[in-house]
């Protein structure tokens, strides 16, 4: 564990609390893509199967994994049941098969070992890299977002961005250790946030509303 990763994980935690806060206080999931949230459930469930196989890393690691699985399911409950009327599927139109198909194929080809757990692990890494796409697509379509929603996305983006210095740090402190699947997917994932951060810095942090140029 290093500081980059710790802050990254805390930022990931923060993003979830920001999202929960947004939904609970506005009593609405308007502006949130349920497709992206469903993909996160799939990401966590497929990646954290090692909770049940005895490959224990640390209490911190296990608690975080359980939290991510539990909170992502809870968010789906809020969106699908509790605040269902505020969920507008007509603007959440990204086709999930464009994501699920290619990531499944990639996982079957590029994995560390052709076993059930390893293929699912690789799948979850590829899936996480692009899971934000329905959300970004929705943002692009509506051209605007509530400020709290942009804070949620910023926290997620910071989480992903900080994993990169974490890998560089680990490379030098762990004798050239590198996890190519996580690194390549992680760089792709971080790159997807670049456009968003441009608008976030130039508008939201200057006190303006998040609005995309027409």
């Amino acid at each position: 564990m290093n500081l980059f990763r710790l802050v990254a994980d805390l930022s990931h935690l923060a993003s979830i609390f920001i999202l929960l806060h947004k939904i609970q206080t506005t009593r609405s999931c308007r502006g949130i893509s349920i497709k992206t949230q469903l993909l996160y459930v799939l990401v966590f469930v497929t990646r954290y199967l090692d909770l049940f196989t005895g490959d224990f890393v640390s209490i911190y690691n296990s608690v975080m994994k359980l939290f991510f699985i539990g909170s992502s399911c809870y968010i789906i409950y809020l969106m699908r049941i509790k605040y269902k009327p505020t969920n507008d599927p007509s603007i959440d139109t990204f086709r999930l098969e464009y994501i699920l198909g290619p990531t499944a194929v990639l996982a079957l080809i590029f994995n560390y070992k052709f076993t059930f757990l390893e293929v699912l692990w690789a799948f979850s890494i590829y899936l996480e890299a692009v899971a934000i796409l329905p959300q970004l697509f929705m943002l692009q379509r509506t051209g605007e977002a509530e400020t709290i929603t942009t804070h949620y996305l910023a926290a997620l983006g910071i989480y992903r961005g900080l994993y990169i210095p974490n890998w560089i740090y680990r490379y030098f402190t762990e004798g050239g250790a590198i996890d190519p699947i996580a690194v390549v997917a992680g760089i792709v994932q971080t790159a997807l946030y670049v456009d968003f951060f441009y608008v976030y810095f130039t508008k939201v942090l200057q006190g303006q509303k998040f609005e995309l140029p027409a």
Binding site: N61, F68, Y112, N166, R170, A177, D179
Partner: peptide
């Protein structure tokens, strides 16, 4: 085992 296969990150 290379670090990559430990999967010790979240």
């Amino acid at each position: 085992v290379p670090a990559a296969e430990k999967h010790d990150e979240l």
